[in-house]
Design a protein around this nucleic acid. Sequence first.
DNA 1: TCAGCCTAGTTGACACGTCAATCAGTATGG
DNA 2: CCATACTGATTGACGTGTCAACTAGGCTGA
Lengths: 157, 157
Amino acid sequence: MPRRLPTSAELRIWRDFIETVEALRGVVAARLQAETGLSPGDYVVLLALSEAPQTRLRPSDLAVAIGWERSRLSHHLGRMERRGLIRREGFSGDSRGASVVLAEAGSTAFHSATVPHLTVVRELFVDALTPEQLGAVAEITAALRDQLPETLNRGAL
Amino acid sequence: MPRRLPTSAELRIWRDFIETVEALRGVVAARLQAETGLSPGDYVVLLALSEAPQTRLRPSDLAVAIGWERSRLSHHLGRMERRGLIRREGFSGDSRGASVVLAEAGSTAFHSATVPHLTVVRELFVDALTPEQLGAVAEITAALRDQLPETLNRGAL
DNA sequence: TCAGCCTAGTTGACACGTCAATCAGTATGG
DNA sequence: CCATACTGATTGACGTGTCAACTAGGCTGA
């Protein structure tokens, strides 16, 4: 039984919030793409691979590490492989398993993307907020996440 | 000249924030889809049409009203037209112009989606936050928007 | 008048995401 | 041994978004 509906003020906060975050995501993505040739998705994949032993991971492990569904990852890896950022190799031991390997081009791209990536986050997010607001963001994030179905509380939580 | 890079704490707040909002958007979209058969995009389009005189708008005006690029809207209208939610008609006066008309099915779908839509927003957003936090969201949204390129400060601002 | 420009709108190519189906290899119980 | 179930991974269909190109109708000034 629904308790009540949002007031128009609450609704406006919701819409502004969602639209602004979407715009922010879009701008960050566009700047990363322009400055480094990598999408945010590319970046997280390359980051996880860089940190992995031998810079290689099985797709399932990679998916867990970055909190993606396997199918999403598979599609993305296909695109990254076409661009030479990663390679797929067989996995000795379990012949249904595969292995994703960081390619030379991927490593290079990742390293030259790190600073631009962090700079964009600073300029558009960290510098936009006061330290108190940044703390409030952390609180709000946690509160919102708690309200989400548990299935989604994935990742480094 | 970059001033400094984000600390790892700041970076973690950023990542959690973006991931959580994305998850939230996904959950809202999935629930709307399941309960009403409409995507968030469908909903905003139908909302704008419902409020327009004669429930009809020229695509450009519609695009401005909801803050979308024309091409995005055009693609979306194509899909909505296939489903019978809207119709496209000619526009008398300027023969380049067209007109988007709310179809019967669109009107029905929109009206039966309103309450579920508001309920989802309440449950996953409004109810997750204290009134103070809701106020903080509004502040933070404004601060983030101010940092975005002006081109994007679109809509009812 | 008509060349050049602006505006309205659509289209095509492609990246990204989700879902359901599929395929192949491993494990397991009778 | 083998049917069955489970797991790792990919695939196809389709919705969604962006960008650049394109069509086509108005507008304006030499």
